[in-house]
């Protein structure tokens, strides 16, 4: 081997001024995924390595007084590599995690200002703008005085009730075009944020409806289902509530003409019936799902530490 070291070896040098490179691991799927019409997002995870990883480049170097020879020269050293993982966490989970809850208890607002605009919130979410918008709409998020919030179920219930009352007073049919701004202002007079009322209009808008203008138009089926789910989730206690009472309350919370639409089948999958006459909301809220996911991650971490501790013994 010693002779080869002298004859056939490739000189290896290390540049004094190393450049900045990053190594991004490319999973085999990524190529086909990148070619897909709607490429899914990937999360980037930085992985530290205890080894030295050099990026090398051929160079033609004369070291000392030697005749210049073809050399392999390390031009960068990477202490970490980047891995790509398909982002499988739904956008709504991210948005829920970063937004403070806007709650109204006994007429008093209970919310922590985050002094962050919608754009500022999106900047911290590792998803595309389109997905952020989707999650934002799903949690009925809204901006108020420079902060962003997501309403509690209890708040949604109260604001909906105010919307319904104002629409009734003004003779507005919610499933035909109406001036959303005007209705939101009436809701504001009741002490609720107008932007939240507008967020609800947009959340419940008929498909294809432009929600950016001052006009709104609610989808009747969507709205009936939303009101039913909101009412049920806002009910405290897990022992269950009488189905007949719940449906009656649901009907009372809808515009007169829609009363007949309040049927359990329109909120199917979102409730459990502990007995044949009682009903309770299923733990469908995404916030609970995220809470469940977090301890899971912690548990894995714990195991890793346990394993690490074992090897150290």
């Amino acid at each position: 081997m010693a002779t080869q070291q002298g004859e056939g070896g490739v000189p290896f040098a290390v540049a004094h001024e190393l450049q900045n490179f990053r190594l991004l691991e490319l999973p085999p799927e990524i190529v086909e995924l990148l070619e897909a019409p709607n490429p899914p997002p990937f999360q980037i995870r930085q992985v530290q390595t205890s080894n030295s990883v050099f990026v090398t480049q051929p160079a033609f170097d004369a070291h000392g007084n030697d005749i210049p020879t073809s050399t392999t020269c390390a031009i960068a050293s990477c202490t970490a590599t980047l891995e790509l993982h398909p982002a499988d966490t739904p956008a709504v989970a991210y948005i829920e995690a970063v937004l403070p809850v806007y709650d109204i208890v006994g007429g008093e607002v209970d919310a922590i200002q985050n002094d962050t605009s919608k754009g500022g919130v999106f900047a911290d979410v590792p998803l595309s703008s389109g997905q952020c918008e989707q999650g934002w709409a799903e949690v009925v998020a809204f901006e108020l005085s420079g902060s962003s919030y997501r309403p509690s179920v209890n708040t949604l219930r109260q604001v909906w009730s105010s919307i319904n009352a104002a629409a009734l007073a003004e003779g507005i049919r919610l499933d035909s075009q109406f001036l959303g701004y005007d209705l939101a202002e009436m809701v504001q007079e009741e002490g609720f944020p107008a932007p939240l009322a507008l967020a609800i209009f947009s959340h419940l808008a008929s498909a294809g409806q432009d929600t950016s203008g001052q006009w709104s138009c609610l989808d009747r089926r969507k709205t009936v289902s939303f009101v039913g789910k909101t009412l049920l989730q806002a009910k405290r206690g897990s022992s269950g509530h009488l189905v007949a009472d719940f449906v009656e309350e649901w009907k009372d919370s809808l515009p007169e003409a829609w009363r007949g639409d309040a049927a359990l089948k329109s909120i199917e999958g979102t409730y459990d019936t502990p007995t044949s006459t009682t009903i309770v909301a299923k733990g469908i809220s995404a916030s609970r799902a995220t809470e469940a996911a977090v301890p899971k991650a912690a548990a894995v971490k714990g195991k890793w530490h346990e394993r690490f501790a074992k090897t150290r013994k």
Partner: peptide, 30 residues
């Protein structure tokens, strides 16, 4: 021309200001 070389540990060498790089060894593919 870029290639990757990974090794356990690190390469330490005394700085030589006159050169832009320091030859630290040789690669042999026996």
């Amino acid at each position: 021309g870029l290639a990757l070389l990974e090794l356990q540990g690190d390469i330490r060498f005394p700085p030589a200001a006159a050169q832009s790089s320091t030859q630290v060894g040789k690669l042999v593919f026996p």
